[in-house]
Amino acid sequence: MDDVEESKLIGLSQQGSVDAFNALIECYQKEALKIAFRILGNLSDAEDVCQTAWMSAWKSIKNFRGGSFRAWIFSIVANACRDELRKRKRKRNMETSIPDCPLPSTDVLTDDIVLTREKVEAVQKALLRLPYEQRLAVILRVYVDMNYKEISKVMKCPLGTVRSRLNRGLHRLRDLLRDGECL
């Protein structure tokens, strides 16, 4: 979808068109689910969070004042994930964070790394051990291919903070993966 078409759909959504908003959902749902899943580590929770996020985006679409819609929508998804994590913390349910990580049917053979089921689980576990802010920065950079400017819009923080969160997050992740003998 190009920018013109997107802003047309946003305009129609702001006037109350559900169909236009559903077209926007269709465009971004894959990436939104990716973010939610990598933050929460659980597919059904990620799906619920995405549905909640889309609902709250619909309610507040009138407040969208231009700029990157992608960044706006992902910041809503990230906030919904944060609320879910807080809920979990309240329920002291943190041990349920790794249950249904999507696993390859057979081992995935890439350039020089064989991704076994254990490795996939270990990487997801390591991601979940990062502090929320660092995890979100790494996920937005690696899985949604956002540049630093866009990440700073999603996280509502300056570029320097994005840089340091990414740097610390990746270093910590590297150490955790080394401890788990994945690297």
Binding site: V18, F21, N22, I25, Q29, A32, L33, K34, F37, R38, L43, A46, E47, C50, Q51, W54, M55, W58, P102, L103, P104, V108, T110, D111, I113, L115, K119, V120, V123, Q124, L127, V138, V142, Y143, L170, H171, L173, R174, L177, R178, C182, L183
Partner: peptide, 29 residues
Amino acid sequence: DSLRQTIGLLRQMPEVSSERTFRIDEKNV
């Protein structure tokens, strides 16, 4: 090199997909 490998490993994680369709219903609105 170690950071490059870490990013490579993260990128090789299997894609997540869902059978659920996300839509806003007129009823909910």
